[in-house]
Amino acid sequence: MAILVHNPAYFQNKTVVVTGGSDGIGRAMVEELLNAGANVATCSRNSDKLYQLQVQNPGSKLFTMVADVSNETDCRNFINAVIRNFSTVDILVNNAGISMRAEFHEASLDTIRKVMDINFWGVVYCTKYALPYIQQQKGDIIGVSSIAGYRGLPGRSGYSASKWALQGWMEALRTELLESGVNVMWVCPGFTSSNIRNAALNKNAEAQGESPMDEKAMMTSEECAVHIMNAIAKRKRTLVMTFQGKQTVFMNKFFPALADKLVRKFFYKDNVLVK
């Protein structure tokens, strides 16, 4: 049964910024938000995919711009362009992100640095420049995190670090803004079918170009996007999706030593990282 947006009216005529909206969860969110009547702005490094997004949504209230969220100037220019087009920002969805797959001993520092620049600093930059407008609107700031923000995952040390940093930063920001009317939320999709594993960096900071996981068995990006939108409308604090994700968070909190063994078993076969 299809998952539906429960309260599309929450987004109607609001200006929603979604970073990394040319693919995966971000693209699915852009399309669902447009269907809900929102003004949507999105950015990506891929101009061709942004063009396709525009072509497939003719006449919609959609603004796109090529920008790299790891670059502070790009983030500032993007938010300024959004303001010129839509006058304000009601909701910021910090979705742009990248993964990695390499054990720490073989991973280049460039791999880990690039992951941190996109997954952590990209959120900080965009939020910094959008915050004054969101505060005026008493709006929402969302960070798309990961189960790796609760439980470090082998082969993804830099990715795990970036998501732990993201969640700690957002928790601090949420507390600072608690009496302001702004809601800060981080969501953890678990394993979702998207391009993130194909684009994941290898030990040399290059896209690995393939997924070691069974993408067909995962939650779709479209379903994930709807879950996020429903959580935004309810102004939740956190959202952990999938039974496996909730199980991992629970096990790591109450049975961490056992979680170590179970996570190791999931990702390794004969002492070789296979996922």
Rank of each mutant, 00 (worst) to 15 (best):
N13M: 04
L131C: 11
I91K: 00
R113D: 06
A107C: 13
Y159P: 01
A161E: 00
K261V: 09
K14M: 08
P212N: 09
M65P: 01
F11Y: 15
K275I: 10
T220L: 07
A161D: 01
S146H: 04
T127W: 08
D110E: 15
R197M: 15
Y268K: 11
S146V: 02
V274R: 07
A148W: 01
L177V: 07
I98F: 04
V182Q: 05
C75D: 06
A161I: 02
P132T: 15
V187D: 02
N119E: 09
F191R: 09
S160I: 08
P132Y: 14
A233V: 07
D270M: 01
T127F: 08
R237M: 06
T64N: 07
F86K: 11
S47V: 12
R45M: 02
K49I: 07
S145A: 04
F243P: 00
R84W: 09
A9F: 14
L201D: 05
K261C: 08
Q167F: 01
G59D: 06
S44V: 08
W186A: 09
A257M: 10
L273V: 04
S221I: 01
E210N: 15
L131K: 10
E210G: 10
E72S: 12
R84G: 13
D260T: 13
R235A: 06
R174F: 03
V18D: 07
M251Q: 13
A231P: 09
N252L: 08
I83M: 11
F63K: 05
E106C: 11
L273Q: 09
F78W: 12
A107Q: 12
K253G: 12
W121P: 05
D48A: 14
W164I: 08
F267D: 11
M170Q: 10
L173Y: 06
N57G: 00
K138Y: 12
L173I: 04
A259L: 01
M218D: 00
V274A: 11
P189L: 05
R84S: 15
P58K: 03
N204W: 09
A257F: 05
A257Q: 10
I118E: 08
F255L: 15
A36Y: 00
V69L: 05
Q52F: 07
K253R: 15
V182W: 05
W186D: 13
Y125Q: 04
T64C: 14
D110H: 13
S47I: 11
C75H: 03
